[in-house]
Nucleic acid binder design. Structure first.
Length: 295
DNA sequence: ACCCGTGTTCGCTG
DNA sequence: TCAGCGAACACGGG
């Protein structure tokens, strides 16, 4: 799920579903231990239970939740990894035996069973629920005491956020000039610009008509400016898609909404180009581009 | 069975 | 000293 547009979408989803609500119960997949590093499922469940969701923020691909509990303010840092998503869960009834959410966070007596791949269920005080779904478990849910997110190394290391700070071409040029790596690989560095991932790095290069294999430190100012525009455009495009009715994206049989990503062999969509999209591998990741118009 | 995958971290190397 | 590279993580889908 995760590049900046989808993480932003996740933040909006969480605000819509849960902002201002109290977490009445927490049910966690106790086997998904790596997801709850370093606190462990039990500590996460204990910290969240009874707390009210006061804020949902995002920096790059990092989701930053602020909760107010009996013990004071606690932060929850959610990273979606490769396949994480937040979604509405089924309604629930408090009734039951009060079968605690506390005992290790795993589903105890009376706890509703979690659907496959749902690693965490937050049961809210109005009978609604939100689920964190993550089949591959590359994501992370960790506590941040006092919601002091700046104390997290992964947050402190982030570069400017495209939505909060904008994309400054001069700053981008400075960052790119500092590395000899290929430009598409350089764009994946979260310290350069927070939130760029494999899809949008390739899409931005395509929009800038820039060969993704070019050395980052050898781009002209005009090329970096075009890249900055390409990044703004591809993020804007994806966010509009996510706001729209067809959220299916690339999975679940949904149409591929991208211009080069996942389109190996297809025709380049730049007017009058007609080149064939090619796939190469850079830094162990697929890169898609049009050899004809991307120079 | 085999290959691929929207991300990140870690250890090694030159 | 450190930029850059490749393996590893874990699981489902084509």
């Amino acid at each position: 799920m995760p590049e900046l547009p989808e993480v932003e979408h996740a933040a909006r989803t969480l605000r819509r579903l849960a902002l201002g609500r109290r977490v009445a119960r927490v049910v966690l997949d106790g086997r998904a231990r790596r997801l709850f590093r370093p606190d462990g499922p039990a500590a996460v469940a204990a910290a969240l239970t009874g707390a009210r969701l006061a804020a949902v923020d995002r920096r790059g691909k990092q989701l930053l939740l602020t909760l107010e509990g009996a013990e004071g303010v606690v932060g929850l840092n959610s990273h979606l990894g490769m396949t994480g998503k937040w979604e509405a869960g089924p309604r629930w009834s408090p009734g039951g035996t009060g079968g605690s959410s506390g005992s290790g966070g795993s589903s105890g007596p009376g706890a509703p069973p979690l659907p496959p791949h749902v690693r965490a269920a937050l049961l809210l005080d109005d009978g609604s629920a939100v689920h964190y779904d993550d089949p591959r478990m590359f994501g992370r849910l960790r506590l941040v005491p006092g919601a002091r997110f700046e104390a997290l190394a992964e947050v402190a290391a982030l570069g400017p956020d495209p939505l909060h700070d904008g994309i400054d071409a001069a700053a981008l040029a400075t960052g790119l000039a500092a590395t000899r790596r290929p430009v598409k690989v350089a764009l994946l560095d979260q310290g350069l610009l927070a939130g760029v991932g494999n899809i949008h790095a390739a899409e931005a290069c395509w929009r800038a008509r820039l060969d993704p294999r070019r050395r980052a430190d050898r781009l002209s100012r005009a090329e970096v400016a075009a890249l900055a525009r390409g990044l703004r455009a591809t993020f804007r495009f994806a966010l509009a898609k996510l706001d729209g009715p067809d959220i299916e994206y690339i999975e679940a049989g949904g149409d591929n909404p991208f211009h080069v990503y996942g389109r190996e062999g297809a025709r380049c969509r730049h007017p009058g180009c007609g080149g064939a999209v090619r796939r190469v591998v850079q830094a162990q990741r697929s890169t898609f581009y049009c050899p004809r118009c991307q120079r």
